[in-house]
Simulated scan of single mutants.
Amino acid sequence: MPIYEFQCQACGHRFDRLQKMADPDPETCPSCGEPRVSRQLSAPQFRLAGGGWYETDFKKDGDKKRNLTEGSSGAPAAAPAPAASPAPAASPAPAAKSSD
């Protein structure tokens, strides 16, 4: 069930409510009792990140995972390649002094 955010237009009290999508919104404010409650638009509390969605993340090791963001040709979506940095030139090691 989703969590909805509400605010009373009379007193400014903000509250959350866990309810089914088909349930009616609350009509009265739990703080002041006024019938001026409205649903607020708020950002979700999660973020989807990563390289894509997989058919399943619970396949056996021998099964091939298929990235669902790949096109029909099976090629992954174009992503910028990381810039290759040249390897630093090796400097000669300092010679050890010999004590006589």
Rank of each mutant, 00 (worst) to 15 (best):
P2T: 00
P2N: 09
W53M: 12
A79T: 12
P44Q: 05
R36K: 15
Q19G: 07
N67Y: 09
G52M: 07
Q45P: 05
F58M: 07
P94K: 10
S38Q: 11
A81Q: 15
K59S: 06
A95I: 10
E55G: 06
A84K: 05
R17S: 01
K59V: 07
A95M: 14
A43R: 13
P92A: 10
P2V: 08
A83T: 07
G51K: 06
Q19S: 05
A81M: 13
K59L: 12
T69F: 09
M21W: 08
D23N: 04
L68R: 08
A87R: 00
A10F: 02
Q9Y: 09
I3L: 05
A49R: 12
K65Q: 10
S42G: 04
K20V: 01
H13L: 02
C29D: 03
G52H: 06
Q45A: 05
P88W: 02
P86H: 02
R17Q: 10
G12H: 00
R47M: 15
C8E: 02
Q45D: 13
A90F: 08
A90S: 11
G52W: 11
G33C: 10
A83R: 12
R14A: 11
W53N: 14
A79Q: 06
T28R: 10
K59N: 03
R47F: 05
G52D: 08
S38I: 13
R66M: 01
A83P: 02
R47K: 11
G51C: 14
A78E: 14
S99V: 14
G12M: 09
S98R: 15
Q45R: 15
Q9L: 04
Q7M: 15
H13C: 00
K97N: 14
A93I: 07
N67L: 14
D23H: 00
P24R: 07
A77H: 04
P94I: 06
P80A: 06
A95R: 08
A95E: 09
A43D: 05
K64I: 05
D63F: 07
S73Y: 05
A77F: 02
A89T: 03
D16M: 04
K20L: 08
P2H: 01
Y4N: 13
D23F: 08
S91K: 11
R36F: 06
D25I: 09
Q19F: 02
L18I: 09
A49I: 04
A96E: 12
T56A: 15
T56G: 10
E5L: 15
A81W: 05
A90D: 06
Q9V: 05
A96D: 04
E55A: 12
A89D: 01
E5D: 15
D23S: 08
F6D: 11
P76R: 03
N67P: 04
A90V: 10
L48E: 14
P35I: 00
G50S: 10
T69A: 14
A96H: 13
T28E: 01
Q19L: 05
E34S: 03
A95T: 13
P80S: 02
I3E: 00
S38G: 03
S99Y: 12
W53S: 04
S42Q: 14
A83E: 07
A75P: 01
Y4E: 01
G12K: 13
R17W: 01
A95G: 07
K64W: 01
K59W: 03
P76C: 02
R66E: 12
P82D: 06
G74C: 10
D57W: 14
G50H: 08
P86F: 00
G71S: 03
V37L: 00
A49V: 14
K20T: 12
E34F: 01
D16T: 10
A43I: 10
P80K: 04
